[in-house]
Write a protein that binds this DNA or RNA. Structure first.
Lengths: 339, 339
DNA sequence: GATGCCGATAACCATTGGGTTATGAGGCGC
DNA sequence: GCGCCTCATAACCCAATGGTTATCGGCATC
């Protein structure tokens, strides 16, 4: 039983297929098969059996899948800890949803790092569906954004710390805005929606609200929600915007709220870590910090589009693509499946 | 980084010496050195440095030592879980101190297994100093007896559940018993003490009480505390006996209590498991059970020397030697270092 | 300064791990 | 019946692991 074998099995268990795991690992499929064969022999359990189309796991296989993740994750954490043991500073790796990153992460993490000297924060952005895997595999210490998806045998500490509301807004000049009357959902859904880069994320409250509708709107993804809001002001479409962010434009009359059934959609942002002593000390520190008045004040403070100050301890590393193969659509050149 | 390397390093960290670890593993010392060299290279940390007499660990090495135990332990647990996943029954491995095993474990575990159908309990006996390693390495799910030694970076759930008292007893015919006056410690310590097979364990309250005395008595180890008690009744020496066990003989006049400073020595028996979700379900079950009135009643019930009934679900596997190389000393033939 | 203890290293060997390509074998859809 | 997808197996390769014995080197201790 080697760590590599456990890693391979965990991936197979998650993907449900040797072929897919081989692709994901960038190795041939017999290599995966061999690793599993070694595990089977070592543990004296078939772990899984072939079914018509794919595999199904034995009881032992399911146990293994849950534990393998844990062991591999611990090994990853170990490698990091040893590497950092010399340096006094602890680096904290945060994964955040696109929306949270854009609207709150900067202020929150700046405040946190200012308050805890010697801390270094690395911010990674990915959709909420990636939260749990990131935590399990120890590629992140804490996840900020929507409540992560529950996964069997993985226990998370989820601390809700910020409410938000999303409302439908549009320019006063927009056709749907002129009447001032309630807008039927069917009508709203037939118009293109302006969104941030991630569209409307499935794991959020607004995502669940949207998917339960009969039809799905065309989403026009812009590089940020603020740009989507600007586009809405320019009359280019409707937007399911954060109430707090749109407030100023609403007051200034540049946007109006559309009266849509089911809105405002209320959601919660949470700080999630591995539970049961598996979270890093820094993660627990930040998880406690997010609920403090100081943190709330920092996130809620209205602010100009703040350029992240140079020399900041917060470093944004990458924007994961919200969906593989989904490029940003330009407003001027709608794609082939556009309106 | 392989599990074997982690195991080796954990042992070296615990024993503080490559040589000792090599002996313990039954391999040559260069093999240990090579394993550590591989780890050092892989983790890019020296892990430890040579000092005049032995080694001392770097910060990274200390981190690694703590985590390595955890990972190796998880892997052990995993191997067991997978093996048992098919069978519905969960087997619970209990490690108990010699004294607890003799006086309370039987009644407790019989009651527990009767109450929880399908459970199977395996009982291992070793001194309290072996509790923490047994739990860490997952060779036991729960430890019953004195509070385990604290080890850095290992968090245990310790639940005290039974008080006991030890008093000094002797036959009424014993020289020290005839006067009825208080017996000075110095006098008592110059007489041989009858004990169970483990002597007076260091990690217990009575052990701590004893080691703080100026001199240590000669211990005459008998195969069980009950036999030691019988020997005391026969006038063969004094004994630091459990008050509850000696009560009957005291009432019957076969034994008298000696008035000794510091006695009765009060101690606590605890049920200890790994904390933070690392304990098995069965272990938590038993840990909760020990504090119930039902469990207390079973343990406190005065009973004849009960032969473990055949077909019992409780299986005692082995008596670890209380001290390496320490054989039971016959009463008739005291050893070369005897009085 | 000679002696020992203890860890590091060298030289060597067998086994395993992890990878490839090529091929086999079973079930599902058409 | 045919192809296709999926996993298993075979044959082969290289590198790493884990083990040995023999030797070297630093540092206490006497």
């Amino acid at each position: 039983m080697t760590l590599s074998q456990l890693r391979t099995f965990a991936l197979v268990a998650r993907l449900g297929s040797l072929h897919a795991a081989a692709l994901a690992l960038g190795i041939s499929e017999p290599a995966v098969s061999a690793a599993l064969a070694a595990l089977r022999k070592d543990l004296d359990d078939p772990l899984f059996v072939r079914t018509g189309s794919g595999i199904s796991f034995t009881a032992g296989g399911r146990r293994l899948a849950a534990r393998a993740d844990e062991i591999v994750g611990l090994a990853e954490q170990l490698r990091r800890e040893v590497g950092e043991a010399g340096t006094a500073i602890a680096s904290l790796r945060v994964v955040a949803s696109p929306a949270f990153e854009e609207h709150a992460a900067g202020a929150l993490l700046e405040t946190f790092t200012r308050r805890t000297p010697g801390s270094r924060v690395q911010l990674d952005v990915r959709s909420g569906s990636g939260f749990t895997p990131s935590l399990i595999w120890r590629s992140a210490d804490i996840a900020l954004g929507p409540r992560p998806q529950a996964v069997a045998d993985v226990v998370l500490d989820v601390v809700p710390f910020l409410r938000y509301q999303r409302i439908v807004v549009a320019s006063p000049a927009h056709p749907l805005a002129r009447s001032g009357a309630r807008v039927p959902l069917a009508v709203l859904l037939s118009h293109p929606w302006l969104t941030g880069p991630a569209g409307v994320e499935e794991l959020t409250e607004e995502g669940r609200w949207l998917v339960q509708q009969d039809r799905q709107p065309d989403l026009v993804r812009l590089p940020s929600e603020r740009e989507a809001l600007a586009a809405a002001e320019a009359g280019e479409g409707v937007m399911l915007a954060l109430a707090a962010v749109a407030r100023e434009a609403l007051r200034g009359g540049k946007l109006v709220r559309l009266d849509v059934e089911g809105t405002p959609v209320a959601g919660l942002w949470c700080a999630s870590t591995l539970s049961l002593g598996r979270a890093s000390a820094g993660a627990r520190l930040l998880q406690r910090f997010v609920t403090t008045p100081e943190a709330s004040a920092a996130m809620l403070a209205p602010r100009a589009r703040k350029v992240r100050r140079p020399g900041s301890a917060v470093h944004v590393t990458l924007w994961s693509s919200p969906k593989a193969g989904t490029a940003f659509r330009s407003r001027a050149e709608p794609g082939p499946d556009g309106p």
